[in-house]
Amino acid sequence: MQIVRRAKSHGDGTITFSLALGAARQMCRLTTTFHTDKQALSYLHKYRTELEQMARARLASGQLEDGIVVLSML
């Protein structure tokens, strides 16, 4: 499993990205305190491994909000 590089910022400190699960994808949302897309995306890439592990753990335990794995800054 890996985080797919496709990421989109909503301008409000939230980034959506897809977690690859074989051929399937799981949408994830990361909430940050950053004000710019560049800062938020840099954070996502810096902590990619940790965020992926957190997303997989939440998915396995069924912690979804409207079918989306919701994460926040480490």
Rank of each mutant, 00 (worst) to 15 (best):
M1S: 11
Q2A: 14
I3L: 13
I3M: 15
I3A: 09
R6H: 14
A7H: 04
K8Q: 10
K8F: 11
S9W: 03
H10K: 11
G11A: 06
G11V: 00
G13C: 11
T14P: 01
I15G: 01
T16Q: 06
T16G: 03
F17Q: 02
L19V: 06
L19D: 05
A20P: 00
A20Q: 15
G22N: 01
G22D: 00
A24D: 15
A24Y: 07
A24R: 13
R25C: 05
Q26P: 08
Q26F: 06
M27G: 03
C28W: 02
R29V: 15
T31W: 09
T31M: 07
T31Y: 07
T32L: 05
T33L: 03
H35D: 09
T36A: 02
T36W: 00
D37E: 11
D37T: 09
K38R: 04
K38G: 00
Q39I: 00
A40Y: 04
S42Y: 10
S42M: 06
S42L: 10
Y43W: 07
H45R: 11
K46G: 03
K46H: 11
Y47T: 01
Y47L: 05
Y47P: 01
R48Q: 15
T49S: 11
T49Q: 14
L51C: 12
L51P: 02
E52M: 13
E52V: 08
E52L: 12
Q53E: 15
M54V: 08
M54P: 00
A55N: 08
R56L: 15
A57V: 09
A57R: 11
R58Y: 12
R58C: 07
R58I: 05
R58H: 14
L59A: 05
L59D: 11
A60T: 06
A60M: 03
S61N: 09
G62T: 06
Q63M: 07
Q63W: 03
Q63G: 03
Q63L: 11
Q63R: 15
Q63A: 07
E65S: 14
E65A: 15
D66M: 14
D66F: 12
D66V: 05
G67K: 13
G67E: 12
I68W: 12
I68K: 10
I68M: 08
V69P: 00
V69G: 03
V69Q: 01
V70H: 09
V70S: 06
L71R: 12
S72H: 12
M73Q: 13
L74S: 07
L74E: 14
